[in-house]
Design a binder for these strands. Structure first.
Length: 569
DNA sequence: AAGCCCCAG
DNA sequence: CATTCTGGGGCTT
């Protein structure tokens, strides 16, 4: 094994990370809304399936995404609550997020019910005068415990303090919001998340370095590792390996041939228990959308009605958010007998003037305008002159116009040395016209290239040949061809240069690179945001070599990797 | 910028 | 597998 991507082992344990997961989140929210549901088996229903359930229902064997009929067979007295509108869950989710934020600036949301918290600074502060009692469970597997890994870098004390902080946060969430949670405490995100689910519900668990190897070995396959999804797993399985030790023992260069260098490094590191990815503060979402699946929509007027309903609900969410969106995305899922129900999306920019001074509803004129745009996008996807069969419609607003927008941050404008970013932002803002006319949608027909795998039945050994052709493509793309474009390189260099000039002190006032006179004039919340931005930038840059720009199978978009590997269909 | 893919709960 | 209803991010074009 090569360790070329590993950082200083002392730094590997330097952070204290907590992962908090709300127990059966939707069910708890429904019980808070209606306490009568507290002591009955409860399932949350979306369309024909139970998406989650409380622990009473789980005792009957009810599982996530089980058909309603199946669930009723297992538990005839199952009570169902409709959870198709996520509004209440979204609201509770942000309350939880706000509560946690009082303990650290760095809180990262994952879905509606999970949060990562970097409490490194808090833990170090508390080291001075706290006892090191561990609260909650400690992950232990005495046979697997590796005393060579006993660490004296101070992580034991920090993680112990971490258990106290986690306990305090969970207590706070319970008393303020009435929700029970689980927590995992360790020195990186992956380990914190994984270990938290070893004791459920309403418990917490800490993982120390000497137990990491044993813990990882206890996982039955690499599929359990967050970041290794279905596709990656299926690809690695074609090598005849699937457990963590098997991946670690497999020759790295062979893995690289299949997966590319970056992805391989990431996967191998995760298998070792090494995850440098920083806890990124979650700000406002980058998109706000709604979708509704349905049995069968085949008339244009039905489509219009559905979109209108979605739009009214969506506008409320956008109004609550406060920012003004500049692009609109339409999603359509067509009925497809060859099972792959993939969604098709089309997007276009919308004039921001539609949203100027609106509160929670649009003017009728603006609504008509947007519906017209929606239908234009829809016609790009569906030819209404031919019979059609739609099973899902969705709308989503993105690219928000706001001074506190994640990408177009104030901080990036103020950082004198990150000029490239600032220039592109300005260009973007100028390109937004006040023209109310509907954007031109070209008449170009969407010719869908049907890449069905039906010919595989003809081939004697389709699997092998497909894998080989995949290998061939991989090899082509692995070497000189995939160097970044010159323009990308220049931006990257500029970024790096600007980062080098930032020193590493934990100063909480004006960050380096920002004009102090300008900074001092700003309101305190904006100052805070700039400081947070700066911190996030620092964290990402220090781990850039491993975590940046890694998509697993970047190079073969067209036919997904599975097309080469999975043919038995 | 648009379209496609992968990942997460 | 996806199924629900979302959200994030990366790459190619």
């Amino acid at each position: 094994m090569d360790h070329e991507n590993f950082e200083n082992p002392m730094e590997e344990h330097s952070r204290t990370i907590i992962h908090i997961d709300i127990d059966c989140f939707y069910a708890q929210v429904e019980i808070l809304k209606n306490p009568n549901l507290k002591n009955v088996p409860l399932g949350i229903q979306q369309k024909n399936i139970v998406v989650t359930s409380n622990y009473i229902a789980r005792e009957y064997g009810i599982k996530k995404c089980m058909q309603i009929v199946e669930a009723k067979k297992l538990c005839p007295e199952l009570v169902l609550a409709n959870g198709e509108d996520l509004k209440d869950y979204r609201e509770m989710s942000s309350k939880v997020h706000e509560t946690i934020r009082k303990y650290s600036q760095a809180v990262e949301k994952l879905g509606l019910d999970e949060n990562f918290i970097d409490v490194s600074i808090l833990a170090k502060e508390k080291l001075v005068n706290e006892k090191f009692d561990i609260i909650g469970n400690k992950y232990e597997n005495l046979e697997q415990e590796n005393m060579n890994e006993l660490c004296y870098c101070g992580c034991r004390q920090r993680l112990s303090i971490g258990t106290q902080i986690a306990n305090e946060i969970r207590q706070k969430i319970f008393t303020d919001l009435g929700l029970t949670t689980c927590a995992g405490i360790s020195y990186n995100k992956m380990l914190a998340k994984l270990v938290g689910s070893t004791h459920k519900p309403n418990q917490q668990t800490v993982l120390f370095p000497e137990n990491v190897q044993g813990f990882l070995r206890s996982l039955k396959s690499i599929r359990s590792i967050p970041g290794i999804g279905y596709k990656t797993y299926e690809v690695i399985k074609t090598l005849g390996i699937q457990t963590i030790p098997e991946v670690l023992d497999y020759p790295t260069d062979k893995l690289q041939e299949l997966l590319g260098k970056e992805s391989t490094a990431k996967i191998v590191n995760l298998c070792r228990g090494y995850d440098p990815s920083p806890v990124k503060s979650s700000g406002k979402p980058l998109s706000i959308g709604l979708e509704d699946s349905c049995r069968n929509i085949n008339g244009k007027s039905e489509v219009e009605i559905k979109f209108k309903q979605l739009l009214t609900r969506l506008i409320e969410l956008v109004a609550k958010d406060g920012r003004i969106p500049t692009t609109l995305k339409v999603t359509v899922r067509k009925f497809d007998k060859s099972q792959t129900s993939h969604r098709e999306q089309k997007q276009t920019s919308i004039p921001p003037s539609i949203f100027t001074n609106f509160t929670s509803t649009l003017t009728e004129k603006s609504e008509k305008k947007i519906l017209l745009i929606i239908m234009k996008l829809f016609h790009k996807i569906v030819d209404v002159n031919k019979p059609f069969h739609i099973t899902l419609l969705g709308l989503s607003f993105t690219k928000f116009l706001d001074r506190l927008n994640n990408k177009n941050t104030i901080a990036s404008f103020l950082m004198k040395n990150v000029t490239v970013q600032a220039v592109t932002n300005l260009q973007n803002n100028e390109s937004i016209t006040m023209d109310d006319s509907v954007p031109d949608t070209s008449l170009r027909r969407t010719n869908i290239i049907e890449t069905d795998g039906s010919e595989s039945e003809v081939e004697p050994s389709p699997k092998k040949s497909k894998i080989e052709s995949f290998f061939a493509k991989r090899r082509c793309l692995s070497s000189p061809m995939d160097s970044p474009s010159p323009s990308k390189l220049r931006v990257a260099e500029l970024r790096l240069n600007s980062m080098e000039r930032i020193n590493e002190n934990e100063v909480l006032d004006c960050p380096p690179g920002v004009d102090p006179t300008v900074f001092s004039e700003l309101p305190s919340d904006v100052q805070q945001e700039i400081v947070n931005d700066w911190k996030n930038n620092q964290q990402t840059s220090s781990s850039a070599s491993v975590s940046r720009s890694q998509s697993n199978f970047s190079k073969n978009n067209k036919n997904s990797i599975l097309n080469y590997l999975i043919t038995d269909k």
